[in-house]
Design a protein around this nucleic acid. Structure first.
Length: 107
DNA sequence: CTAATGACCATTA
DNA sequence: ATAATGGCCATTA
């Protein structure tokens, strides 16, 4: 575990249910404004599934709340379809493959 | 050490 | 609107 990935997980955990953040945003939060791509890599390797019950909240990383800057979903280890389903359950509407960032972006 | 690899981004055409 | 392009950067081989 590198400090880089730990910071990413920490930042990602701050995103509340019903909101989303972009990879670039996470990158900015941890002080590496140009590392958005590396952020995606780190989240990809994240083994902590959001859906696992009983997992301590400190270990849960809601990586499904991280999307692309253009509002499209971006990737997901278990499939983008799954990602969308979880978001929908939290109240984030994905229409036409895009999310209305004006409404759901975490500020 | 170098090279390749992406859950990316902004710009340009 | 989509597609290509060049840049970016931590991690891994």
């Amino acid at each position: 575990m590198t400090s880089f990935t730990e910071k990413i997980y920490s930042a990602t955990r701050k995103i509340p249910s019903g909101k989303v953040a972009t990879y670039a945003q996470i990158a900015r939060m941890i002080g590496r404004p140009r590392a958005s791509r590396a952020v995606g890599n780190a989240l990809d390797k994240n083994p902590h599934s959001y859906l696992v019950k009983g997992l301590p909240s400190r270990q849960r990383v809601p990586c499904h709340r991280v999307v692309r800057s253009d509002g499209s979903l971006g990737g997901f280890a278990s499939g983008a379809k799954k990602k969308q389903a979880i978001l929908a359950k939290e109240g984030v509407v994905v229409s036409g493959g895009k999310i209305d960032l004006k409404r759901y972006l975490y500020r």
